[in-house]
Amino acid sequence: MARLSIDDLKKIKEKTAKETSLREGRAKIKIMVHMGTCGIAAGARDVMNALMDELAESDRDDIRVVASGCMGMCSSEPNVTVEVDGEEPIIYQKMDANKMRQVFMRHVLKGEVQTDFALAKM
């Protein structure tokens, strides 16, 4: 086995810190992609995959992405709900990969609600 260098140790430290924060559930922002039959048929999978890419690039450990079922608003699918700690959840409607990237970069990372795509405040 190769010897550990200082850099390796630093990497291990960073990774462990990241891991612990995930375990302790420090997620401040929850992004929910609704993936019922209606959502999937309307393109929720592409939205989900774009979101995963953005999340990986952002290197943030306080954002949690989850999938959920149909919420009964099938005609406005794909729907995405963004819940920022301490703020009202925002439901976005008729999303696609590009809109998802915009919502992630503006709303999730910078806190600017993208009212153009919003369906409702809950």
Binding site: R45, M48, M52, V65, A67
Partner: peptide, 13 residues
């Protein structure tokens, strides 16, 4: 896109 399907499931749940 099976990769997309599986990734969505695995990350979503």
């Amino acid at each position: 896109d099976m990769t997309g399907t599986l990734m969505s499931l695995i990350i979503g749940y």
